[in-house]
């Protein structure tokens, strides 16, 4: 027996070579991971929420919830929800179409590798860099803006729903486009495995049983994909809803709730007091919880025929 295994056999954690062992000791191996996630995931979440239900002096209060009576905060919540919803629906539909089209490419071919990688990059490509690209595209002197102007004499910014809120790109309606830009790739990443899971035999079975392509999509394709489709859509909603960097890089005004949170943070006088951001965090968590609950209901409905 080697020195290493002899040394290990002496420790309780090294049990396993022989049958009987003390079950307890091995569990200690999880301590670092548990401690890390406790301190840096559980504690911050609790602290954020705690900040929402305490007063500046640290005593418990529900007074902070009056923030939800503030019209600009309500508007920011509404903007965030409407934007995320629109982005989720549009990206889910467009992304799903692209996924189906990608079935025409060879599963391990170069196109699929490139699309996979590009989707991962673009789905990660939120924030500052994405904002730059869209400023260069549809900002006041962006390439697309100028092209529209010279070719069709149309001012992109005149299309903005709110004429008083500045250029289109800095309003929720304009942010729809950069949000789509990272959400469609996310849809491809999340939904492609489900589309690939459609077995060719199902299509062949439909055909030999007398059904056409439309029957296939109506009776097999759509119902089989539905749970993954709505699951991916909810994922996109969550990701768009919590997205901060893109909005922050485009605008300083608190039109979306994550931006409002940061503004309130930097305006809090006493450092480390996070009452208003805390109560907004509670609002976000509640909305996310509702979304996740909807997701689990959906999954349960499909569970009967899924493994």
């Amino acid at each position: 027996m080697s020195a290493a295994s002899a040394a290990v056999a002496g420790r309780s954690a090294g049990a396993g070579a022989r049958k009987p062992r003390r079950r307890g000791a091995g569990w200690l191996g999880f301590t670092p991971f548990a401690a890390y996630t406790l301190v840096f995931m559980a504690v911050p979440t609790v602290l954020a929420v705690w900040g929402g239900v305490t007063a500046e002096d640290g005593s418990f209060t529900l007074a902070n919830f009056s923030a939800f009576g503030d019209r600009s905060i309500l508007k920011a919540f509404e903007n965030s929800i409407v934007l995320s919803l629109a982005v989720a629906v549009a990206s889910a539909i467009l992304g799903a179409i692209l996924c189906v089209m990608l079935l025409a490419a060879k599963p391990n071919g170069i196109l699929r590798v490139v699309v996979d990688a590009a989707s991962s990059v673009l789905a990660q490509f939120g924030g500052v860099m994405l904002a730059f690209a869209f400023i260069a595209t549809m900002g006041s002197s962006g390439m697309f803006t100028l092209w529209l102007q010279s070719t069709f004499h149309v001012d992109l910014n005149s299309l903005a729903p709110d004429k008083t809120a500045g250029p289109l790109l800095y309003q929720p309606a304009g942010m729809f486009f950069p949000y789509l830009y990272f959400s469609i790739p996310l849809m491809i990443i999340a939904f492609m495995p489900a589309v690939e899971g459609l077995r060719p035999q199902w299509g062949e079975a439909v055909a030999t049983l007398g059904g056409g392509r439309f029957s296939y999509w109506r009776h097999v394709g759509a119902p089989v994909l539905a749970p993954s489709f709505f699951g991916a859509m909810i994922l996109i909603f969550a990701s768009a809803f919590s997205s901060f960097a893109t909005a922050a890089a485009l605008t300083n005004s608190g039109i979306l709730i994550p931006v409002v949170m940061q503004q309130d943070l930097s305006s809090e006088t006493a450092s480390g007091v996070t009452n208003i951001p805390g109560v907004l965090a509670i609002g976000m968590i509640v909305i996310m919880a509702i979304v996740m609950w909807a997701y689990s209901v959906l999954q349960r409905r499909a569970a009967r025929w899924q493994r």
């Binding site: 840096f40 602290l47 954020a48 900040g51 901060f244 480390g272 996310m288």
Partner: peptide
């Protein structure tokens, strides 16, 4: 972490990092 918005975590990180 997918279902906890990063901004929420970030708010909580402030006292931790202090």
């Amino acid at each position: 972490p997918i279902s906890i918005p990063t901004v929420v975590l970030a708010v909580g990180f402030i006292p931790v990092y202090q």
